[in-house]
Design a protein around this nucleic acid. Sequence first.
DNA 1: TGCAATACCCACCAGAAGGTAAGTATGACG
DNA 2: CGTCATACTTACCTTCTGGTGGGTATTGCA
Lengths: 120, 120
Amino acid sequence: MTDRDWRCEDPEQQLVWASATSEALRVLEGKWKIVIIIQLFAAKKPLRFSELERRVDGVNQKMLIQQLRQLEKDGIVTRMVYPQVPPKVEYTLTEMGIALGPSLEALIDWAFMRREALGH
Amino acid sequence: MTDRDWRCEDPEQQLVWASATSEALRVLEGKWKIVIIIQLFAAKKPLRFSELERRVDGVNQKMLIQQLRQLEKDGIVTRMVYPQVPPKVEYTLTEMGIALGPSLEALIDWAFMRREALGH
DNA sequence: TGCAATACCCACCAGAAGGTAAGTATGACG
DNA sequence: CGTCATACTTACCTTCTGGTGGGTATTGCA
């Protein structure tokens, strides 16, 4: 475990924290990734492409695939192909995807706090 | 406090969590925002425009202002203008900006975990 | 024969985001 | 009068992201 006091004075360390966080955020960026991840979290089981398509409201096939591929590349989801016809492909969260839980929870908390503070 | 178990089965709730998180992320998105926020956190004091320009490596004036204005609009930073010549403008984190702390920490933790897992 | 089901791929387009280089406003100071 | 410092603003260009509407491959089944 590294020292995590990113409010420290060391400018070098600040650069490290900043770049680490930017990197982490890049994995979550894009219009659909969070929604996909939360759907996979909520389902608690592998989801087929078509199931995701149904659950992620408003997404189209190209976008869904694109984001899934990026999430796969980033180690957040696993793609499992069943060689049958018609095709069947299942997506699951990896361990690293599951490990995102606390961050997402913290973000959710902040979002709701903010909502209340802004009076919505 | 609302129920925060976003891994629940209720599809309606999932939509709420998903949209809340997307909203929160939108506030942090953009190439420079995280770096700006972390610099303000680390400084523990108001920073002038030119100080930020120096601390946020690689940013140009237009981008820095643009992102600062968005952060201001989103209630993350405060812009304080001193009416003097040459001009002096200071930027501070709002309460809501400071409240981002735990989320950022969780993201940093995850980012470092991921780094180790990927063997960097 | 030909259609259905599933998970894609491709060409193309529009708008948003990011970036560069120059200009502006102000008043103190020499 | 001209220069300096600071915090912007503007015009313009390039790149990235999101989106639409088509097409494809495979095999079972009517």
